[in-house]
Design a protein around this nucleic acid. Structure first.
Lengths: 236, 236
DNA sequence: TAGTGGTCTAGACCACCCG
DNA sequence: GGGTGGTCTAGACCACTAT
């Protein structure tokens, strides 16, 4: 007669909460029971319920406020996650061969537009690199990158003939703040030649800006091959 | 003489760990002290240290294994998060006026390519919608969408003349699994007219696939205006 | 001011996995 | 086998905020 008293883990609770939202047992915009009530229902402690609900809130399904309660959000799909792998890994993961080729390496003063993007002053030095990444000998990505000498002094000793700048940076710089952006651009003649595309082909471009403790590290503009598609990692 | 014994919060511990990685106090690929040791150093309990390290691992900075320890990962920027707002909010957030216009609404059997994308059978019905979203009377996004009648039966009663399909779905369907993808496309003549663009302009396209408990809900292909840029939310 | 979630404590047992 | 992180317990006090 007595119902099961086995306590639920925080993972089970997460799953049950999701099911109840899907069943509309708990409707959109409505409030869940309090943590104390749920802890009793699931024969567990408030700590465990708290972890389950906190994670669901982080994932965008719930909204929580002190004194107010926990509400079912209406638009749970508020966020999408992308993993940004090293390009070598991205290419070899498909079974293709990876090849790297340096096109240009030059030291110069950062141009004004770059200083503005990186929120830094314009009279500092940077190494400017252009290179190509191939998959099975076909152009996969054309990379146009600046690396700031003040923040990464070792860069002046790097030729980048054998290793791509991103791969080198990831080995060298501990960790950073990053901004990404993505847009579509039209291939000009130069870009078309690098990517074996036709002039005016649509090109998927991603830009990555990196800082280390507020100091500018690098700006990268990545031109992807025609037909490239960026996809989310299934689901959070 | 005695050092401060004030215990550290999990947020402070996260910050300290990040600083030590940036300082190279803890080098890339090296191991951190164990949770017990850190708990002692920070005058707190293992629970608190655990939460700090667990969150840093979720964010991609650390790798943790039982019996093995906690390691500083080399490529911390393994993931980027995007928030995907309702288009009305996206537009009004910039201060622009939002306007919506339905172009086409038709009930039909799902085409084979769509059944394949949604992992569902082809002999079911769907409502096919095309519509435009304007910002200050200029085309902002052209939307091409299918909504599955079997999963969302109420859709047959919706005219979508006054409210966009996404806005209606978000009010109606509790929550779902989602896949996103993004790519660059070339505007054909029709698309150019809808978006007030020129033929062969590069267009940023996003596709969104949604399921509810494994049942296909909707497929949306969103063509953004020329010059659109998608950006990450600053930093995790 | 009262009620809710946010966080912490001091312990415990368990699961995994390297050696 | 033993050491590490993963999780849970049964409490406690705090911080925020709706009313």
């Amino acid at each position: 007669m007595e119902p099961s008293r086995a306590s639920r883990s925080y993972r089970e609770i997460k799953q049950i909460v999701i099911e109840r939202i899907q069943n509309q047992t708990w409707e959109l915009d409505s409030f869940l029971p309090t943590e104390v009530e749920l802890a009793e229902e699931f024969s567990t402690t408030r700590t465990t319920v708290n972890r389950a609900l906190r994670e669901l809130a982080d994932e965008g399904y719930l909204e929580r406020k002190r004194k107010y309660g926990t509400k079912v959000l209406r638009a749970p799909v508020a966020q999408a996650k992308f993993s940004i792998p090293l390009i070598r890994a991205e290419i070899t993961a498909t079974g293709a061969d990876y090849r790297y080729s340096l096109i240009r390496r030059a030291e110069m003063t950062v141009p004004d537009w770059l200083a503005s993007r990186m929120k830094c002053c314009a009279d500092q030095k940077a190494v400017h690199i252009r290179c190509l990444h191939y998959a099975n000998s076909r152009p996969f990505q054309f990379e146009d990158r600046w690396i700031m000498v003040d923040t990464v002094p070792d860069v002046v000793d790097q030729s980048f003939t054998d290793i791509g700048p991103n791969e080198w940076l990831v080995r060298t710089i501990p960790f950073s703040d990053v901004e990404h952006c993505f847009y579509a651009a039209r291939a000009d003649q130069t870009l078309a030649e690098f990517l074996s595309a036709n002039t005016s082909d649509p090109i998927f471009v991603s830009e990555r800006l990196t800082w280390l403790k507020s100091n500018p590290v690098t700006f990268a503009r990545l031109y992807h091959h025609v037909g490239f598609v960026m996809t989310t990692n299934s689901n959070a």
